[in-house]
């Protein structure tokens, strides 16, 4: 039940972003599915392994691979699916908690949350790199 709820929330948020970024009308639902699946992988890994950066990493790989797959299937640039899809993973919460710790002068908490935020951002980056490199390898093989 928890996962179904989270799926729906992430789905609607991603759709909201795809409208802000004005993606093609026929791709809105697809990008929503990609973003929601990425988020589910993220929380699942986060619960099982207790590591938020591992969650963000595998979540970003999921979004990236789904995006590249949809891009081949529907002949659209992969960014159309990847950009709205990774937004739920972006550590906005971490950024906020770091700032809040700084203004409350809890500098140790700030360093902890700040470095975690940075690691999450780096994991998203690596996840996107790996998924698009994988898709490039497949593209070369096909040719």
């Amino acid at each position: 039940m928890y996962f179904i709820k989270q799926f729906i929330y992430a789905f609607i948020s991603t759709i909201g972003f795809s409208i802000i970024f004005n993606i093609p009308r026929d791709s809105i639902i697809k990008s929503g599915i990609g973003g929601a699946l990425g988020w589910i992988v993220n929380i699942l890994i986060n619960q099982q392994l207790g590591s938020s950066s591992a969650g963000a990493f595998l979540g970003a790989i999921t979004v990236g691979l789904i995006g590249e797959f949809f891009a081949r299937l529907f002949k659209k640039p992969a960014t159309v699916f990847i950009i709205p899809g990774i937004i739920p993973l972006v550590p906005g919460a971490g950024m906020y908690y770091t700032m809040r710790a700084i203004i409350e002068k809890k500098f140790i908490t700030a360093a902890e949350t700040g470095s975690e935020t940075f690691f999450i951002a780096a994991s998203i980056a690596t996840g996107v790199i790996i998924s698009s490199s994988i898709s490039k390898i497949f593209k070369l093989k096909k040719n």
Binding site: S13, F21, I83, I86, G92, Y96, Y97, A125, V128, I129
Partner: peptide
Amino acid sequence: DKIIIGSIMPLVPGVAITNAIR
């Protein structure tokens, strides 16, 4: 906290991050 975190999401630089990496 939850209100601020939710509403800053439309501002966060998701596109810039993705494009920088790609």
